[in-house]
Design a protein around this nucleic acid. Sequence first.
DNA 1: GCGAATTTGTGCGTATGTATT
DNA 2: TAATACATACGCACAAATTCG
Lengths: 241, 241
Amino acid sequence: MGPRDKFSIEPLYVQVRNLLAQRLASGVWPPGSMLPNEMELARELGVSSGTVRKALDSLESDRLIVRRQGRGTSVVDQASGDAAARFSNIRNGEGRRIGGDMELISQIKAVATATERQRLQLAAGDFVLRSTRLRRYRNQLFMHEDAVLAMSRFPGLDEKNAGTLRISALAQRHGIHLAKASERVTLEEVSAQSAERLDIDLHTRLLKLDRVVYAAGGYPVEWRVAFCSLKEDMLYLAEMV
Amino acid sequence: MGPRDKFSIEPLYVQVRNLLAQRLASGVWPPGSMLPNEMELARELGVSSGTVRKALDSLESDRLIVRRQGRGTSVVDQASGDAAARFSNIRNGEGRRIGGDMELISQIKAVATATERQRLQLAAGDFVLRSTRLRRYRNQLFMHEDAVLAMSRFPGLDEKNAGTLRISALAQRHGIHLAKASERVTLEEVSAQSAERLDIDLHTRLLKLDRVVYAAGGYPVEWRVAFCSLKEDMLYLAEMV
DNA sequence: GCGAATTTGTGCGTATGTATT
DNA sequence: TAATACATACGCACAAATTCG
């Protein structure tokens, strides 16, 4: 890596962090595998071990890697375990996040509407992939959702099964690191169509979850509007720090 | 501070962090004031500047202090600005958190019920302070809340005006550092009494916000159940990271 | 079961960069 | 401009956890 590049404003440890993040995204070190140890990385990149440590600190706080003393550093699998439902605030009785099983209802590729362009920060003419899905938990239908994917953020997107994957898995396949999401929670009367699909009475009160998921670069990748009927032993839990 | 104490498992920088946190809580450095610089702290405590830096990193990430290069390190005022509404997910149109103006309706000191003991992790016989309040934003009534304060966590609590202060201000006065909160969001039909107080029709759809606020030690300090009628230009926004 | 090797974590010290006053 | 204070970068030594022979 050599001495600090005068033309890049970024501190060296940030450059290292970004380089490693890029490698993680590229699949050089697949999910679950081990990274080279810190000294080796420092040698290879020509920086001090302290600089590598700061870079790894950053990657760890972004949940891209996990480190364990005496063991080493491994790559987090975003598509399995708790990471897969990271952006769901629906939890079961034990407090674990619920993703649920998805059933794709319909899917269509289209030019983004004005609203979609606004929410996903897209340009005119950009394409989106709209998916309508149902979600079940323990065979109970609890959610109906319309998800809109910004296709330009997913180069080489496989449109065939994109709608059947949750955003965490899809992002990992495309080397995209998800960073955060913000979800607007409101109460809304359910539409006749949704009521039928969720098998509930019209006028039943539902949670409307309007969520945008952002990638590490700060740009939005998915906009989803879901109607959720909280079943017994399910709750919406917002953590504030 | 000297060499590492063999009987305390904590790393030195954690010990320094806790010592400084304690000083902050004690009011030695009041909100808004400047801390001694890093080298001075290191000299005074007899540790390296790197250790002080790690301690300050931790305090900063816990939002107890803010550091600015070239300027120094100052103490965050938890009772004003955004910090005061840190545990409210209700936001206005510009995305700023809304605390609102509080109007105390009633207040009573009592022995904790079983539910209160459970939510606040109290022992039998512990006292709580129950406050019922209304909240307004721009003269619009939007929230009715029942707050339960664990009195044992607030030594020397001034019962007279405890109910009129928001939890962030109250905690700061008692040298308690708030760390996190978790809020259960559900839909519930409003009670007749709440409906009257919020000046809305019965059967209007409301958000029920059931929130517990935790201090830095991990113990709960306040349990609050609120019914919120989201007015125009207000929204509930949950951030996920 | 024990000890050696490996790997991350902690702690120290120093030099230099950069933003603020 | 000069002084101050935090930020970055380097390097070394040792501690603690894990793994493996």
